Simulated scan of single mutants.
Amino acid sequence: MSLLLAIDTATEACSAAIWQDGNVLSRYQVAPRGHTELILPMVEKLLAEAGVSLTQLDGLVFGRGPGSFTGVRITLGVAQGLAFGADLPLFGVSNLQALAQGAHRHTGCASVLATIDARMGEIYAGGFTLEAGVMTETEAESVLPPTEFLANCQGQWQQGAGSGFVTYPELTARVDALCDAVPFPEARDMLPQALRDLAAGRGVSAADARPVYLRDKVTWQKLPGR
């Protein structure tokens, strides 16, 4: 018997989900802004619906990136705060992996190219293949321009998913995309990997949880006159 709470705010979507002995309760809302105000009420409603408290959980799952820098930091900060208070282990799951898991949930496909619009003319991308019910990385996650990705990637995928395909439709020359069905990762699709990590004892303390940005530094433009 396992009880996990998952949260994610790393992209334009804000979501939370609870795994309760094989049953999944979830909330999902596309809201480019306001994640900070949305995520905790989602968590409170899910816990109330499940009839459990934070201290009864076996662990807390968070989208560890890649995604927007602010969104990833919000997810990590909320997860750490909840975990500190309830003395829970944390399990970070890739947002690209969650996209691939969502595509599998929708269509049953066994191999997925997952992409997230990284802004600045680039995408976050990774290839995943189904192993024992969990989408597992088979082409390393990276951040690069779509044209460079298309020129260098080696994998073959049954399906594509994520906002990278919306922003850069030329990617569909490589693979058919579920642009409408799976545009953003959902917290519920982080649960399969988290359950595997829970069984293997791979949780970390709140103090040791880390994000994965893929970009080493943020590129930004100064305001005029600065």
Rank of each mutant, 00 (worst) to 15 (best):
G34Y: 01
P185I: 09
A13Q: 04
A207Y: 07
F62W: 03
T136H: 04
A151F: 00
G201C: 13
I18D: 12
A83C: 07
A48H: 10
G92Q: 11
H104F: 04
R196M: 09
T36A: 15
P145W: 00
S53F: 01
A181N: 04
V78I: 15
S15C: 12
V24D: 06
G201F: 08
G164Y: 03
T36M: 07
A194S: 13
V78Y: 01
V52C: 15
V24G: 07
T147N: 04
F165P: 04
G67R: 08
T219R: 13
K45F: 00
T172F: 00
A110Y: 00
S111H: 02
G34N: 08
V166I: 12
G203H: 09
A209G: 06
P183W: 04
Q158P: 05
K45L: 06
N23P: 00
P211W: 03
A6E: 11
R196S: 14
T129N: 03
I39W: 04
A17F: 09
R73E: 07
A140V: 15
I7Y: 02
D180T: 14
N152S: 14
V218L: 14
S15V: 08
P32E: 09
T36C: 11
L4F: 02
V93C: 10
V78R: 00
R119A: 11
Y124F: 15
A31L: 07
L3N: 13
G81W: 03
